[in-house]
């Protein structure tokens, strides 16, 4: 299980990296943490012609507060750095919880925040977290920068709006509104393994016992990470009763995901999981918000 040969470039600045990506076009591929790409290359299922390794581009690794109380995370920031960062822990405890479910420590020590998002694995945590937290992505190319919302970024399994000469440079998370609770719910065969269904949810309460906003992101149950719309349609402005949550959960399981049958479970089983997990996530998030 040895990878096929490839041309290798190790730029030390963003500018150099963008030059190289432009030059290589479709034959170039960004190498970030490598924790998804290299196993695929070892199986020779992925055979990129050329890799542009960003590990020496130190300027892409940072976590900075934004003026509005959010955070900006450089694309090459390792998952474990995000996981342990004090600001992330204070402002987005749900993100920390989510990252802890990514494989194991050894993988998180190398895997990168932006790399996982750009890889757009439908079974990965971070694309879903980006949807949930309404992240904004800074995309750079030689032509300049453009900003794309997470909701517009993912277009299919392992597919995003990124062009070959572009790189995802920064992920900006808007501030978490006050009175927000969050919950992470997952069923996987094993700890650190792929989810058979997973739900991350935030619920913001309005101070009078009613829901201001309910967000539910799902992954591992469709062609990409998903943001369900029904929960907010039903719950916003309402008292989140068990009945209302149950209705939402049933609806999402039936209409807002598309899990397939695989060796570990049938579509029916996985829709059932979505139903249970959406209910649990919303119930838990409401509880958390009330604290």
């Amino acid at each position: 299980m040895k990878p096929a040969p490839f041309d290798y470039y190790a730029p030390t600045s963003v500018e150099e990296a963008l030059d190289k990506l432009t030059e290589l076009g479709y034959s170039g591929k960004v190498l970030a943490g490598g924790q998804s790409l290299i196993p695929a290359m070892n199986f020779r299922m992925a055979r990129p012609t050329a890799l542009v390794d960003l590990n020496k581009v130190k300027e892409l690794s940072y976590i900075k507060p934004t003026a509005d109380g959010g955070l900006a995370i450089g694309t090459m920031t390792r998952d474990s750095v995000v996981e342990e960062d004090i600001m992330v822990n204070e402002r987005y405890p749900i993100l920390v919880k989510t990252i802890k479910h990514i494989a194991h420590k050894q993988i998180r020590n190398r895997g990168t925040f932006g790399g996982a998002i750009a890889h757009a694995d439908p079974a990965a945590q971070l694309p879903a977290a980006a949807l949930l937290l309404d992240a904004n992505f800074k995309i750079l190319s030689k032509a300049g920068e453009r900003w794309v919302k997470a909701t517009d970024f993912f277009i299919g399994p392992f597919m995003t709006v990124l062009e070959p000469e572009e790189m995802l440079a920064e992920v900006v998370l808007p501030p978490m509104p006050a009175n927000t609770g969050a919950s992470y719910q997952q069923v996987s065969r094993q700890k650190g393994g792929y989810a058979q269904a997973a739900v991350i949810s935030t619920v913001t309460m309005d101070g009078s016992g009613k829901v201001k906003e309910a967000r539910v992101a799902l992954f591992s149950v469709g062609e990409s990470a998903l943001l369900a719309s029904k929960p907010n349609q039903v719950l916003a402005g309402q008292v989140p009763t068990a009945e209302a949550i149950e209705e939402v959960a049933a609806y999402v399981a039936k209409n807002e995901c598309d899990p397939g049958t695989d060796i570990h479970g049938t579509e029916e089983y996985r829709r059932n999981l979505v139903h249970v997990l959406v209910r649990r996530a919303l119930t838990d998030a409401v509880q958390q918000a009330k604290k």
Binding site: M1, K2, Y8, A10, L31, G34, Q35, I38, P39, N42, F43, D53, N55, R78, S80, H104, K105, Q106, I107, N109, R110
Partner: peptide, 26 residues
């Protein structure tokens, strides 16, 4: 050689990592 079993775990700058899913050049 696909990053699951952990036998090849080493510390890189103090952090545990799989050495089978990294190129030496990285």
């Amino acid at each position: 050689e696909h990053g699951l079993c952990g036998s090849c775990t080493v510390l890189i700058d103090g952090l545990s990592s799989r050495s089978c899913t990294l190129f030496a050049v990285m």
